[in-house]
């Protein structure tokens, strides 16, 4: 009889006291300047430094125009920072790659592909055999609650359904980090709540690293292990708050939990106290 450890990773991961949790993404003094007109420069991000630990759900919270999405695009490799560096697993980020999967507010689905075609796109691109990619994709579509819609085109789907497809499409190529750019921002309140719940359920199964941009305090506290509060003009990190709430989180329990309520109230108060009072909606 052999003794199998509860988590196989305990065997693999070297335990050194200097590295408590391994950092997957490191952002080091990143600044971003946009030229708004011929003479004017806009400092979107100023000297941002941030470490994201592997397996953490981290939200970037801030008012519109604080550069939170830009920070996400820099990690995605879609935007090159004006100065500073971002690394993933120690490698400098030079461009987009399948290790970082984006989910955009605009869904950005391929409208000429069916739901199944969209989800299969990534695995097929990575060279996964068609039959295998299809089987995996069908399972993912079922997981995001869209079984029966495999052959629908994006245009036939509601916003919430489109975002479910977008999530499945990104999960399909197994990125190590999910980059979510206000993914539920375009959805109505009811749909938004349902998707938050479903995202947590999915996330709690494999605990991928998630970088989640939002301007909703409730959403950030509900989902995250860590909330990075940003302020605007120029975009800076104000504070990083650890959200010490038990998992798995259930919405109906959490909303009644005084600790949850305190986090929300405290964060809202901190934004109100700043000079851009009330700009966090």
């Amino acid at each position: 009889m052999t003794v199998v450890p509860a988590r196989s990773s305990e065997w693999v991961r070297p335990v050194t006291s200097q590295e408590p949790a391994s950092a997957i993404i490191e952002i080091d003094r990143v600044s971003q300047v946009f030229q708004t007109s011929a003479r004017k420069d806009h400092l979107a991000l100023s000297e941002i430094s941030l470490t994201i630990e592997e397996g953490a759900f981290v939200s970037i919270l801030g008012p519109s125009g604080c550069g939170k999405s830009t920070l996400l695009y820099i990690v995605g490799g879609f935007v090159r920072p004006t100065s500073g560096t971002a690394t993933i697993k120690g490698h400098a980020i030079a461009g987009p790659g399948p290790d970082r999967g984006p989910v955009f507010q605009e869904f950005a689905l391929f409208p000429w592909k069916t739901v199944l075609g969209n989800v299969m796109y990534g695995p097929r691109q990575q060279g996964v055999h068609a039959a295998e990619a299809e089987a995996q994709s069908r399972a993912l579509i079922e997981m995001v609650g869209l079984k029966g819609y495999e052959n629908f085109y994006p245009k036939e789907l509601s916003g919430g359904m489109k975002q479910r497809v977008a999530l499945a499409r990104t999960l399909a190529y197994h990125p190590e980090v999910l980059l979510m750019d206000e993914p539920f921002g375009a959805l109505d309140a009811h749909t938004r709540t349902r998707l938050q719940n479903d995202l947590l359920n999915i996330w709690e199964r494999d605990r991928k690293t998630v970088l989640f941009v939002t301007h909703s305090v409730d959403e950030a506290v509900f989902l995250s292990d860590k909330v990075v509060m940003m302020s605007k003009s120029p975009g800076r990190i104000r504070q990083v708050i650890d959200i010490d709430l038990p998992r798995p989180r259930r919405r109906n329990e959490l909303l009644l939990d005084p600790r949850y309520q305190k986090y929300v109230v405290d964060i809202e108060r901190m934004f109100d106290e700043s000079d851009e009072a009330g700009s966090v909606s």
């Binding site: 995605g76 490799g77 879609f78 461009g95 987009p96 790659g97 399948p98 970082r100 999967g101 984006p102 955009f104 605009e106 950005a108 689905l109 391929f110 796109y121 990534g122 691109q125 990575q126 499409r169 990104t170 190529y173 990125p175």
Partner: peptide, 12 residues
């Protein structure tokens, strides 16, 4: 849409 191209770029 730029984001559609980004999605493709992320897939490689």
């Amino acid at each position: 849409e730029e984001k559609m191209l980004w999605s493709g770029a992320a897939m490689g």
